[in-house]
């Protein structure tokens, strides 16, 4: 008889308790965890790392098609711009100049303003059973990135499903040098190490000073050292290291970080009262005595790749 005045509030109480418990369970204790994601879903930090890997790998294998396909996985609206911006951020944060150079080089190649780098020397394979067996593999499951230049490309769509959970844990023990990836055992081939890839020639080529002029009109922002580097054929050269030193400091930057201007373009902002010495490449002659022009303008300095 006493139940009647208490009404049905207990139902609402139970519902609220349940909702709170469910939210705690689904948001804190067992939140949704994603698996089998694709690179476009990575956080910005890891996307930057992914881009850096792509650029470094391109520097290593000179496979532009593969680099393009890998970049496409990130779904950047402007891959070349993203690479260039990352190179600039890397340099600004004091990051590795080699990584910045690789990023800038790939950005310039992608934008079509720079030629592709030379692929490394071909691999010399030691004939083995593994090589023969692999050669007889029938193409079926294509992969996301393009196969190496040596293989024949097939337009087979990438399988949507990845390895089954049971397969995922079938890792060979580290102590076993030969892996058995499938029922039909295909031993890994023995091979001679790939020769070290020849670095792009722009890295160490000497560069000759072609023109050095003060620019006092408004065609350039004031207070800059603007450097333009060209190849022997006259094409703009990205990825060329430029060192600038002054009393009490020095800095390094690269051409190609502003591909929208020119792949061979680089600039450096001067501070009033300091005199700068500039050197292009590893073997270039230094250009001393660069300071803010009396007219308050900028310096424009042009270099060209010299004879070998």
């Amino acid at each position: 008889m006493n139940d009647e005045p208490r009404g049905h509030w207990y139902l609402l109480t139970g519902l609220i308790i349940g909702i709170v418990a469910g939210l705690v369970l689904s948001l804190l204790v067992y939140p949704v965890r994603y698996a089998d994601s694709d690179p476009s879903a990575l956080s910005e930090e890891y996307r930057n790392e992914y881009r850096r890997l792509i650029a470094d790998a391109y520097s290593a294998n000179a496979n532009l098609a593969r680099a393009k396909q890998r970049l496409a996985l990130l779904k950047d609206s402007d891959p070349a711009g993203a690479l260039s911006a990352q190179a600039q951020r890397l340099l600004a944060s004091g990051g590795g100049p080699e990584d910045a150079r690789a990023l800038a080089l790939l950005a310039a190649v992608l934008s079509g303003a720079a030629p592709e780098i030379t692929p490394p020397a071909a691999i010399t394979l030691t004939p083995s059973a593994g090589t023969a067996a692999a050669a007889q593999q029938t193409p079926g499951a294509a992969r996301t990135v393009s196969p190496s230049p040596a293989s024949t490309s097939t337009a087979t769509p990438r399988p949507s499903a990845t390895l089954a959970p049971g397969e995922a844990v079938r890792t060979p023990t580290p102590e076993t040098p030969t892996l058995t990836p499938s029922a039909t055992t295909t031993p890994l081939p023995t091979f001679t190490p790939r020769p070290t890839a020849t670095p792009p020639q722009v890295a160490a080529a000497p560069f000759a000073l072609v023109r050095k002029s003060e620019v006092c009109d408004s065609s350039l922002p004031a207070g800059l050292i603007v450097v333009e580097v060209r190849s022997r054929a006259g094409a703009p050269l990205p990825g060329v290291r430029i060192q600038v030193a002054w009393d009490g400091g020095q800095d390094t930057f690269f051409t190609g970080l502003s591909p929208e201007i020119s792949p061979g373009y680089a600039d450096f902002r001067m501070t009033a009262g300091l005199s700068y010495t500039l050197r292009v490449g590893d073997a270039g002659a230094p250009v001393p005595g660069l300071s803010l022009p009396a007219c308050g303008g900028s310096w424009k300095i042009e270099f060209q790749e010299g004879p070998r």
């Binding site: 691999i123 593999q137 294509a142 196969p147 079938r170 990836p181 081939p189 091979f191």
Partner: peptide, 15 residues
Amino acid sequence: LLTASRLQYAQADLE
């Protein structure tokens, strides 16, 4: 390596 073998990566990539 396992995944690459299953997806039939090129021989050079496996190497």
